[in-house]
Deep mutational scan, measured.
Amino acid sequence: AQASVVANQLIPINTRLTLVMMRSEVVTPVGIPAEDIPALVSMQVNRAVPLGTTLMPDMVKGYA
């Protein structure tokens, strides 16, 4: 199954992502693919992302 990017902590709005904030997990619905984690580093989220939330393309500025 495809692993997705999941928030490893609460990520406040406009925060630049770092590796420690993200983990890969097989979840439904599928979000951003886990292999994109390196590309997500330093991108900003456009909303607060609670712990355990799957990151979707529309949550990350410049990803989609």
Rank of each mutant, 00 (worst) to 15 (best):
M56E: 06
N14P: 00
I32P: 01
G52S: 12
Y63P: 03
V27C: 04
N46H: 10
I13H: 15
R16C: 06
N14C: 07
I13L: 07
V27P: 01
E35S: 13
Q44L: 09
I37D: 00
G52R: 04
S24G: 07
V60T: 02
M43H: 14
V60C: 03
G52W: 05
L51Q: 14
A34R: 05
A34C: 05
A1I: 13
T54L: 04
I37K: 09
P12Q: 14
L19A: 07
V6N: 00
G52Y: 06
R23F: 04
I11N: 00
L40M: 09
I13T: 12
V41R: 08
P50Y: 12
Q2G: 15
I13R: 09
T15A: 12
A7I: 06
V49N: 01
V6I: 14
R16D: 04
A7E: 01
A64D: 08
Y63Q: 04
V49G: 01
V26A: 09
R47W: 06
P33E: 06
T54C: 04
K61C: 06
V27D: 02
S24Y: 07
D36M: 12
L40D: 00
L17K: 00
V26G: 04
V20S: 08
I32K: 00
Q44V: 07
R47I: 10
M43L: 14
P12I: 05
K61E: 14
G31H: 01
V6Q: 03
I11W: 02
V45Q: 00
L51C: 06
G31D: 00
T28A: 13
N14E: 10
N14D: 15
A64S: 15
M21R: 03
V49A: 05
P38R: 09
I37S: 05
A39R: 15
G31Q: 02
D36P: 01
L40G: 00
T53Y: 12
V20I: 09
G62K: 09
G52E: 05
S4P: 02
T54R: 04
M56S: 10
R16V: 15
A3Q: 08
L55A: 00
S24M: 07
V26R: 04
V49C: 05
N46Y: 13
S42L: 11
S42W: 11
R16K: 07
Q2V: 12
G52Q: 03
M59L: 05
V41A: 08
L55I: 14
K61Q: 12
R16E: 05
Q44E: 14
T15C: 04
A7W: 02
M21V: 03
M21D: 04
V60K: 01
Y63A: 04
A1S: 09
E25C: 05
G31S: 02
P57K: 07
T18M: 12
K61M: 12
M59Q: 04
A39S: 10
V6C: 04
N14F: 13
V49D: 01
V6P: 01
V49K: 00
A1V: 13
V41C: 06
V27S: 06
A1D: 15
P33M: 09
A7N: 01
V30H: 11
I13F: 13
A7D: 00
A1N: 08
M56I: 11
G52P: 00
E35K: 09
G62E: 09
E35W: 08
P38C: 06
N14W: 10
V6G: 00
A39N: 15
Q9E: 11
V5G: 02
M59K: 01
V30K: 06
L55N: 01
L10N: 15
A1P: 11
P38W: 12
N8V: 12
M22K: 00
N8K: 07
V20Y: 13
L40C: 03
V41M: 09
N46R: 12
Y63H: 05
V60P: 00
L55G: 01
V20N: 11
I11V: 07
M59T: 05
N8H: 11
M22W: 02
D58M: 11
V27G: 03
R23N: 05
T18V: 12
L51D: 15
N14G: 13
V45C: 04
Q44D: 05
G62N: 08
V26S: 09
V45H: 00
T28Y: 11
A3H: 09
V49I: 11
R23P: 01
L19D: 04
P50F: 13
M56P: 02
M43P: 00
A7F: 02
Q9L: 15
L19Y: 11
D58C: 13
N8L: 09
E35C: 05
A48C: 05
M56T: 12
G62A: 08
R16A: 15
